[in-house]
């Protein structure tokens, strides 16, 4: 089911177009990625969808009952409440539609915010405040989640945890729009439809990780082979009879062969496949 449709949307700021004739739709169980350089208009587009900016032309159709959760690029609000109080108050704004209190507590722990529960939000670092803003956007259990540069200032581990939460929301019927300068392969792996905002136009990118070329690598195990590290482990599809098979994005083929060779695995063969 479609959650929102953006039709021929244009917005000018001070005589300059932020974006022109933008059109796309977001459905349930879908994650959309919007890539674009700094100043390309990603934030303005998300602001328009979140109803904070009035577009000059075009329209956005929201399916009745759509509730938007928004993580802005920069939140100027001065929050002197503690993390627990702020997130609980934010959760309660959505009443019985929000995530349950225990779920929120679980998410707080999952994102590593537990040590800061009694600290006023204003005193936290920028990265931690971003995580709290992310949880504040998610706490209302929105069916449309707009995330503007959500992974800025975050460690790889936190990014993975945030992606897992986003995936979980998607699996529960929400639609998610991620905007960022450039998403890496790990993030692209979660994105269903990828768009590029360039020269004020939004165009669909055909090759996200879900559709891009991948390659199958086969390695032989021998007595000198050492334990495989976690970052490699996630790509392994088969590990039996002294052979390891892995499917990886084509872009990291060479570096992966080098890494495995360093770990004393014997490179056997490579085969390009389309996902």
């Amino acid at each position: 089911m479609k959650l929102l449709s953006v039709n021929d949307l244009s917005l000018q700021n001070g005589g300059y177009f932020a974006f022109k004739h933008v059109a796309f739709s977001l459905s349930q169980n879908e994650i959309i990625g919007i890539n674009g350089d700094n100043g390309s208009g990603k934030t303005q587009l998300l602001e328009a969808i979140a109803n904070n900016q009035t577009p000059d032309s075009g329209q956005i159709d929201y399916t009745p009952g759509t509730r938007i959760g928004y993580l802005p690029q920069y939140n100027p609000q001065i929050i002197d409440q503690t993390v627990t109080k702020y997130l609980e108050d934010t959760r309660r704004l959505s009443k019985n539609l929000a995530v349950r209190k225990e779920q929120l507590e679980g998410m707080i722990t999952f994102l590593g915010i537990s040590p800061y529960l009694n600290v006023p939000v204003q005193q936290l670092s920028l990265g931690l405040r971003r995580r709290i803003d992310f949880l504040a956007a998610v706490a209302g259990h929105p069916n449309v989640l707009l995330l503007d540069e959500p992974f800025a200032f975050q460690s790889n581990k936190t990014i993975m945890n945030m992606l897992n939460l986003i995936q979980d929301l998607k699996d529960n019927g929400s639609g998610v729009i991620l905007a960022g300068t450039r998403f890496n392969d790990t993030i692209n792996h979660y994105i269903d439809n990828d768009y590029l905002l360039k020269d004020n136009r939004l165009t669909k990118i055909q090759s996200t990780t879900n559709t891009e070329l991948k390659t199958l690598l086969v390695f032989g195990v021998n007595v000198k082979s050492v334990a495989i590290t976690k970052d490699i482990e996630e790509y392994i599809t088969v590990n039996r009879n002294g052979l390891i098979e892995m499917i990886i994005p084509l872009g990291i083929k060479d570096s992966m062969i080098q890494k495995m060779t360093r770990l004393n695995y014997q490179f056997e063969e490579a085969k390009d496949i389309e996902n």
């Binding site: 904070n52 928004y70 100027p76 609000q77 001065i78 934010t90 704004l93 209302g140």
Partner: peptide, 11 residues
């Protein structure tokens, strides 16, 4: 006007 834009969006 400087600080509460996103609070109002949430409310």
């Amino acid at each position: 006007s400087q600080q509460n834009e996103y609070l109002k969006q949430k409310v």
